Simulated assay, not measured.
Amino acid sequence: MSAINARPVCKAGPRVPRLFPPGLADRRARLIRQMDAQWVNGTVLHYWFFDGPEPQKQAVRDAFAHWKSLGIGLEFTETATRSEAEVRIDFDQGDGSWSYIGRDILGIANTDVTMNFGWDLTDDYGRTTALHEIGHTLGMPHEHQNPFAGIVWDEPKVYSYFGGAPNNWPRSQTFQNVLKKLNSQEVEGSDWDPDSVMEYWFPAGLILRPEQYREGLNPPGGLSALDVEWVMRFYPALPIAPRSLSAFASAPLVLHPGGQANFTIVPEETRSYRFATFGTADTVLVLFEEVDGQLRHLESDDDGGEDRNATFKVKLFKGRRYVARVRLYWAGQSGQTALMYW
Rank of each mutant, 00 (worst) to 15 (best):
M1A: 13
S2V: 10
A6C: 04
P22V: 06
R33Y: 09
R33D: 10
D36L: 11
A37C: 11
N41T: 14
A63F: 00
F64A: 01
F64Y: 01
S69E: 05
G73D: 08
E78T: 02
S83V: 07
R88L: 01
R88T: 00
I89G: 00
D92G: 09
W98L: 03
I101H: 15
I108S: 01
T111Q: 12
V113R: 15
G118Q: 04
W119I: 07
T122A: 08
D123L: 07
G126K: 07
H132I: 06
E133W: 01
E133D: 01
H136C: 03
M140W: 14
I151E: 07
Y159H: 15
Q173D: 14
V178S: 02
L179K: 04
E186R: 10
W192Y: 14
M198L: 13
E199D: 14
R209I: 09
P219W: 07
G222W: 08
G222R: 03
S224P: 05
F234G: 07
Y235F: 10
G259C: 00
A261C: 04
T277G: 07
R296N: 02
S300N: 12
D301R: 05
D301A: 12
E306R: 15
D307C: 08
A310F: 02
T311K: 14
F312W: 06
R321Y: 03
V323M: 12
R327G: 10
L328H: 05
